[in-house]
Amino acid sequence: MTAVEILIYACLAIGVVFNTLGVIGLLRFPDLYTRMHATTKATTFGSIFTSLAVIVFGLSMFFSQNDSQYLTLAIHAFLAAACLAFTNAVSAHAIARAAHRSGIKPMLAVVDRLEEAKL
């Protein structure tokens, strides 16, 4: 097993672990906002790492076999990961704002300044 293969396996393992933590958080946390903490952060991070494994694989195959198909694979995987990170943050903010506007209160909250501000 070469160093590149170990790197790829490590990235895949980190990705699966964090995706699993995100889904467990989605099932375990008590209310909407805390669930969103788990899903947005953990699944974004996990998916970035599984994509990173694909990028490393594509680049290593490109440099060893000089086939431009693998370069295309790496670049497109990078673009997909970038789209994912950016869109997840924006859609999380959109859903949180919409949920608060529709009147869902955070459970167990010690303070709610947005409710006091009444926007």
């Binding site: 964090f18 933590l21 995100g22 467990i24 958080g25 375990r28 946390f29 209310d31 906002y33 805390t34 903490h37 788990a38 952060k41 953990a42 991070f45 955070p106 459970m107 167990l108 909250a109 010690v110 303070v111 709610d112 300044r113 947005l114 409710e115 501000a117």
Partner: peptide
């Protein structure tokens, strides 16, 4: 900061030590 955030979330998912709230 993203890496630190994920380690933090992992800790909270496992231990469920939370004290949530909305601040300005």
């Amino acid at each position: 900061e993203l890496t630190k955030a994920n380690l933090d979330v992992a800790y909270r998912v496992i231990t469920m030590k939370i004290r949530p709230g909305i601040v300005r």
